[in-house]
Write a protein that binds this DNA or RNA. Structure first.
Lengths: 195, 195
DNA sequence: GCGTCATGTTAACAGTGCACACATAAATAG
DNA sequence: CTATTTATGTGTGCACTGTTAACATGACGC
């Protein structure tokens, strides 16, 4: 926590930042459901109603967290895109996608939470669109054929892998390298035809 | 709702069933977070504490719902396996997987919820294992090569597709047939090599 | 009929999100 | 520099939640 409240003051100084920082920690520690506004206020050392001066509701707070999540995600994906040769681009970005999810499980879950999408405030939509634009840029690097299907397939593979790993559904072998696993799954050429 | 409480009686008759039925409806309507034990009791026409005679906690109730979810899922996947020629097996079961998710969004989400997995009661584990055993049986039908990777890839594809569709992340074209989309993604042979 | 026990009820506790009126201090106008 | 407006934090209260404990009811075996 980088904020120093200078305790005892009536006005906090930068409560919004302090709330966001503490909330992000609580989110990763307990999940979105375990993040309580009152507990959050308690942690930051402020009254229970104070957070409402900065966030309309709990969902608005979560939305702000999700937005910074999209920004981090976007930045990482952008770096992955720039730092990789065109042929490796998709593999590298796939790795980055899954690694981001594994590094920030609850933030990742929050970003894809339908509860947030429900009352779609524009801020979230914009951040999400910006992040996914980075993904869409990869479509160009896809092999020939139906690019939309190929893109969907790549996204589904990567996202499915991330979610299954997050939920502990995939049993990793002892000392197994996750990166190698991701690479193997992405590179696999098996097709499951209906004939 | 198939249960008739014969209103006015002190003892309900089959409260457990009534609770499960109503809870399943509420789950699909509102999601697991929106399912309240008190509201549930109110709907069934019973006091707020009554459900605790049949379920230790809210999480236990959700667990029971998830178990019947796994049973339905297992049954559908089993039928898909039996009713399909070996070459089409994977495609058909993939279709079934995604269709189940789309037909029971919140139940599907609940089944994969990490909150349930956290305090892993044996009943849930068994139901889940039984369901996934049906999936594991398909591994045999996979093409040659590293079967584990191919199985993981298939699972990730199908699960990712289901989750992305559920969360409204995939924009469907007007009048687009979901079945065709699933089939196209599954059949696609694009591999994303790292060289 | 009598007791036992499963299954209901009522009441209470601790916790939550949120809204209101009020207090304080920082910013701004004169 | 003072006066007033505005931003920000406090206190209190409401309606709701999950959960527990003590008590009531009635179904079932003797």
């Amino acid at each position: 926590m980088s904020t120093s409240p200078i305790s005892g003051r009536y006005h906090h100084g930068d409560l919004r930042r302090a709330l966001l920082d503490a909330a992000m920690e609580m989110l990763e520690a307990e999940g979105a459901a375990g993040l309580g506004l009152r507990e959050l206020a308690r942690v930051v050392g402020v009254s229970a109603a104070a957070p409402y001066r900065h966030f309309d509701s709990k969902i608005a707070l979560l939305e702000a967290l999700a937005i910074t999540g999209y920004q981090r995600f976007s930045r990482m994906m952008g770096e992955a895109e720039r730092d990789s040769a065109p042929e490796q681009r998709i593999a590298t970005m796939g790795q980055t996608y899954v690694r981001f999810a594994l590094a920030n499980p609850n933030l990742f879950r929050l970003m894809f939470s339908p509860d947030l999408k429900r009352d779609n405030r524009p801020g979230l939509r914009m951040a999400a669109d910006a992040a996914f634009d980075t993904l869409r840029a990869v479509t160009a690097a896809l092999p020939e054929g139906d690019k939309r299907i190929a893109a969907l397939k790549a996204w589904a593979q990567v996202h499915g892998l991330a979610v299954l790993l997050l939920d502990g559904q995939i049993a990793l072998r002892p000392n197994e390298d996750i990166g190698a696993l991701i690479a193997a799954v992405l590179a696999d050429k098996t097709g499951f035809d209906a004939a």
